[in-house]
C-alpha cells in the first residue's frame, strides 16, 4: 500500500491517540509497579470477574431492549415522507445535544422518592423505590443510547427500495412475511452497527451506575476508574480484558452478519 500525503494527519492522529495509548495499556498490564514483566496484574484483575460479567450482562440487556424499541421506530420513520423523516430524526437528536451527565441528573430527579413518577405511582396505589437498583441503571443506559440504535437502523431501512416491498406484497406476502423476508434481511447491516454502537459504550460506561444504581450496581468502568488511580497495572489489565472481550463480541457479530447477508 502506498501512502498518500493527505493521509499523513490521520496516521499521526491514529498513532498518537490510538496506537500509543493501547501500547501504554499493554505495557502497564504486563508489568508490576516496578516495571518488571509479569502477570500479577491479570491475577488481581480476576478478583473482579463478578462485576465484569454483570457489566456485560447489563450491556447485553440494554442493547436488546434498545433493539426491540428501535426497530419498529426505525421502520416507521423510514416509511414516512422525507419532511416528516427529518422532523422525527431531529426529535431523536435534540436530547443528545445536552450533556449526558445532565440527562442522568434529570433521571435522578424523575425517579427519586416523592419525585414526579413516584408520586404518580403512589396515587395509583403502587409503592416502590424506583431508583438505586439495576432496573434504574438499565433504564438510564437505554435512554442514553437508544438514538445510537435508531439512527443506523433508520438510515439502512430508508434505503430499502419501496418497490421491493410492493413486489413481495404482489407475490402474496402478508405484512409479517414482508418484514421477515424483505425488511429484516436488508436491515442486518443497520442492526449490526446499532448493536455495536450501543453494546460497546454500555459495557464500558461509568458514572451511570453510580448515579442511578444502589450499593451493588458498580460496573466494570467504575472499577477501572477507581482502581486505576491507586494501581495503574491492575486497572490496565482490567481495561485490556474488557477490550478483548468487546473485540471478540464484535468479531462474532460481524461473522453472523456476513452469513446472513449471503443467505439473503
Amino acid at each position: 500500500m502506498r501512502l498518500k500525503k493527505p493521509s499523513i494527519p490521520y496516521i499521526a492522529w491514529m498513532v498518537i491517540f490510538t496506537i500509543l495509548p493501547i501500547a501504554l495499556i499493554l505495557y502497564y498490564a504486563f508489568t508490576d509497579d516496578r516495571g518488571a514483566f509479569g502477570f500479577q496484574a491479570f491475577i488481581n484483575a480476576f478478583g473482579y470477574t463478578g462485576v465484569f460479567l454483570k457489566s456485560l450482562w447489563i450491556a447485553f440487556i440494554s442493547t436488546l431492549i434498545c433493539l426491540v424499541l428501535a426497530y419498529p421506530i426505525g421502520y416507521f420513520m423510514s416509511r414516512q415522507k422525507k419532511s416528516v423523516q427529518n422532523v422525527l430524526t431531529m426529535l431523536f437528536m435534540i436530547p443528545m445535544w445536552m450533556n449526558f451527565l445532565l440527562r442522568i441528573y434529570a433521571w435522578m430527579t424523575l425517579l427519586q422518592n416523592d419525585g414526579p413518577i413516584d408520586t404518580m405511582l403512589s396515587l395509583l396505589g403502587i409503592h416502590t423505590t424506583l431508583i438505586g437498583n439495576q432496573g434504574a441503571v438499565i433504564l438510564g443506559m437505554v435512554y442514553e443510547y437508544l438514538p445510537f440504535m435508531i439512527l443506523p437502523l433508520y438510515t439502512v431501512m430508508s434505503k430499502i427500495d419501496t418497490r421491493l416491498i410492493e413486489a413481495a406484497e404482489d407475490l402474496g406476502c402478508n405484512r409479517l412475511l414482508v418484514m421477515r423476508k424483505v425488511v429484516l434481511p436488508l436491515s442486518i447491516p443497520g442492526i449490526i452497527s446499532g448493536v455495536t454502537m450501543v453494546f460497546v459504550p454500555t459495557a464500558s460506561t461509568f458514572l451511570v451506575a453510580q448515579y442511578l444504581g444502589g450499593t451493588d450496581d458498580l460496573m466494570i468502568g467504575d472499577v477501572i476508574d477507581k482502581i486505576f488511580w491507586s494501581d495503574h497495572n491492575t486497572g490496565s489489565a482490567i481495561a485490556l480484558v474488557l477490550m478483548v472481550a468487546i473485540l471478540i463480541f464484535l468479531i462474532i457479530l460481524n461473522l453472523f452478519g456476513d452469513e446472513e447477508a449471503i443467505a439473503a
Partner: peptide
Amino acid sequence: DKDVYTYMQEQFVKLMS
C-alpha cells in the same frame, strides 16, 4: 505505604461491587 493504600482501595472496590 503504597501497597497498604492500594490494598485498601482494592478492598473498598470489592466491597462496593
